[in-house]
Design a protein around this nucleic acid. Structure first.
Lengths: 228, 228
DNA sequence: CGGCCCCAGATCGTATACAATCTTCGCCCA
DNA sequence: TGGGCGAAGATTGTATACGATCTGGGGCCG
């Protein structure tokens, strides 16, 4: 393994592959052959299988029996469901986080936002996107809700897939001010405002997607034509 | 395998083991040795490992490195988090379900409740508990929210563990009327009532748990003394 | 010339064998 | 007698080998 520590090879692969998906370096529909992944990370098929299974359970990867593993390509319905679930979980979680935010929390969030901006300025759109998603996970962590955090982590992951497929504009995410506004609400321990901001933020995100019912053929066609 | 179909051996084990946990036939803390499970279900270790990993991802099983798999023993904090997450997801989901409930849906729910009662009358408390949990999953299915349904399925599973550890009374669940009331709200397509009933139902459930902060030693002691 | 069938290559699913790690019991020593 | 050390047993982690299934191409038949 690249990572010297044995025994966590599978986790290492999960982390690296997940990051790659979040940064849109690997796109929905791409095939993840066990041999290929194993060769890339210098691991045996056993550990690769374990890693792919883990990612399948989080929804990032879809395993088709005797066909292989592919980066999940969410349907329009799944895309809607992901953001509907986020709409149920995140505003209330933001409220809880706002009640508990300390100065240390706020500082960490601010650093996070700063990193996000830096990535954007450096033209690393993928990295910025990944950080943008992690921001939402951090909020769940501040709320001290491990269970909900794991759900939000999954939903953010899938959102990344949705964005890869259905993002309307090619321009960078112009939503960083939304995160700033949230940070302000947290810093002032204002639960009502945090909840409302998060609700609006999620609505904004969905509104930038193109979730018209696309015939399944069109999507498949794109896959057929697209070179990986 | 008991199930003749090959290739789905792992799924079969997951289903059977999950059911056993839901029915409190296997209790939190119990060790699930790979060899033992494999022998019981007539499967190799490979497939057992896959099954246990799957259950670990849903939170029912905890895998400790080089120690083995155990039925998860949720802490008090985790127990609270499970029901807090349910409080975020389920009322709104019940509302959505109420808007979409058809006569067929209502009939299926009624049959489900009937089965629940039959199990209770037959003294099969475990089976009744399992069905009671499935009722909540059915609601998410009616709401046509696959993503949320999978979350609720996880939460219901973990709730079963929580109930096994923290249920206050030894008496059967006297909550069946709550499910009846929900069914009525669904049948009359009354979203407001459904949402309120679900909210109250979950509060009732939590109120029947004994979630005082128990010193970790006490729980460990029970494990040390209890014979599996 | 087009469509169907069959075979070869590739890929995944499972079992088995070996290595690493942990637990436990017994022994020795203070 | 109690505590610490060490080796044997048990259990899991990983790799490798074999079998099952699917995909794609070539040949045969209509």
């Amino acid at each position: 393994m690249i990572d010297g520590t044995v025994g966590e090879a599978a986790d290492s692969i999960v982390v690296q592959l997940t990051e790659a998906v979040h940064e849109h370096r690997v796109l929905p529909g791409m095939k993840l052959s066990e041999d290929e992944v194993g060769e890339i990370y210098g691991a045996g098929r056993t550990v690769v299988r374990k890693a792919l299974q883990t990612m399948a359970h989080s929804g990032l990867v879809t395993i088709e029996r005797n066909r292989g593993a592919f980066v999940t390509k969410p349907s329009v319905k799944e895309a809607r469901e992901v953001f509907e679930a986020r709409a149920l979980l995140e505003p209330q979680t933001a409220r809880a986080a706002a009640e508990r935010t300390t100065a240390a929390h706020a500082a960490a969030l601010e650093a996070h936002i700063h990193e996000e901006h830096a990535a954007l300025d450096a033209g690393e759109a993928g990295r910025a996107l990944k950080l943008s998603g992690l921001f939402h996970v951090e909020i769940a962590r501040i709320a001290d809700q491990a269970t909900i955090e794991s759900f939000i982590r999954q939903l953010v992951s899938r959102s990344s897939l949705v964005i890869a497929l259905y993002w309307r504009r090619r321009t960078a995410l112009c939503e960083s001010h939304a995160h700033h506004a949230l940070l302000d609400a947290f810093r002032r321990n204002n639960p009502d405002q945090a909840e409302e901001l998060m609700k609006g933020h999620l609505v904004d995100l969905v509104s930038q997607l193109d979730l018209r019912e696309i015939p399944e053929e069109t999507v498949s066609l794109r896959e057929a034509l697209g070179r990986c």
